[in-house]
Design a protein around this nucleic acid. Structure first.
Lengths: 145, 145
DNA sequence: CTAGATAGTCAGCTACTCTGACGATCATGT
DNA sequence: ACATGATCGTCAGAGTAGCTGACTATCTAG
C-alpha cells in the first residue's frame, strides 16, 4: 500500500523520466530508441572505445556494437581508428549526435525543473543528494555524464 | 560531471536495486526474468485481469499475455475463469508464486535497510517521501504494491 | 436486439540482449 | 626476438520482450 519498496519507487520515477525525455527528443526529430540513447549518453567528448561504452552502460560488447551500428547508420556517431591501439576504434558523436545531445540536455533541464517545482527546493536537493550517494553503492563503475 | 540529471540518477539507483533483487531471487531458486517479476508484482491477492495487469505494468495486453504464459508454465501463476465476466480470466499467484512473493518482500526489506544504512535515517526518509510524491506526477495510473 | 466497447488471443514483426567462438593486436616476461 | 596471455572488436546463433493489427467472444447501453 504505502509500503512500496524504494526500488519500485525509483523504478517508477526513472521510467517516467525516461519516457518523457524520449518523447521530447522524438518530437525534436531525433528518432532513436531508448537503448540507443542510453549508450550514446556515455560517449566521451574525445571518443570512447566500444568496450568502455559497454562497461559503462552495463551491456556486453556485442550489444554495444549492435547499438553503435544503429547509431552510426542514423548519423549520430562515427567510428574512427584509435591512433594508440590498432585493435580499437574510437566512437565519437557526429554533428547530428551533438545536436541530439544538446537537445537532450535542454530537455533534462526542463524535466529537472519540473520535478523541482513539484517537490520544492529542499526536497529536490535532498532527492539529488540521496541518489548521488547511492550511486557508488549500487554501481561502483558508473562514470559520470 | 557532477550534474547528472535526476532521471539518470534515478535510473542508476533503480537498475542497481532491481539487479540485486533479481539476483537474490535467483539464488533462492526463483528463476524468472525481470519482466516476468515486474508483471507478477502487480497481481492482486484476489486475482487480476490481464488487461488490468497490462495497464498497471504499462505494457500491451499481448506482452502481458506473453509474460503470464511464461509465469504459468513455470508454476508461478494460475488462470481461472472470472465468475463475473465470461470473457475474462483471473490471474492468481500459485503457491510457488506466493513463495516467490514472500522471498521478494524479504529481499526488498534487506535492500531498503541497506540503503537506509548507507544514507542515514533522515536522508532515506527524504528519499522515500520525494519518490512517493513524484509518483503521481510521472505515472498517474500506477497502482500500489 | 443492435451497436459499440471490452477481454483475451493469434500472427507477424522489430529491437535488445545474451553466450560462444574467432582473428587481430597489444603487453609482458624470458 | 618471441611465446603467452590478455584485450579489442566482430560474427553467428539464439532467446526474450515489446509492438501493431486483426480477430472472436462477450458484455453493456440504447
Amino acid at each position: 500500500m504505502s509500503t512500496a519498496s524504494l526500488g519500485l519507487l525509483a523504478f517508477i520515477a526513472a521510467r517516467g523520466y525516461e519516457q518523457r525525455l524520449h518523447e521530447e527528443l522524438r518530437r525534436a526529430g531525433f528518432t532513436a530508441t531508448v537503448a540507443q540513447f542510453r549508450l550514446a549518453a556515455r560517449i566521451d567528448e574525445g571518443g570512447s572505445r566500444l568496450s568502455d561504452l559497454a562497461r559503462a552502460a552495463q551491456v556486453t560488447k556485442q550489444t554495444a556494437g549492435f547499438l553503435v551500428d544503429q547509431l552510426e547508420r542514423n548519423g549520430y556517431v562515427e567510428r574512427h581508428p584509435d591512433p594508440s591501439d590498432a585493435r580499437a576504434r574510437l566512437i565519437r558523436l557526429a554533428p547530428r549526435g551533438l545536436a541530439a545531445q544538446q537537445a537532450a540536455r535542454a530537455a533534462e533541464e526542463r524535466l529537472d525543473a519540473e520535478w523541482a517545482d513539484h517537490l520544492g527546493p529542499g526536497a529536490v536537493a535532498a532527492l539529488r543528494t540521496a541518489l548521488e550517494r547511492l550511486r557508488p553503492l549500487v554501481d561502483p563503475y558508473d562514470a559520470p555524464d
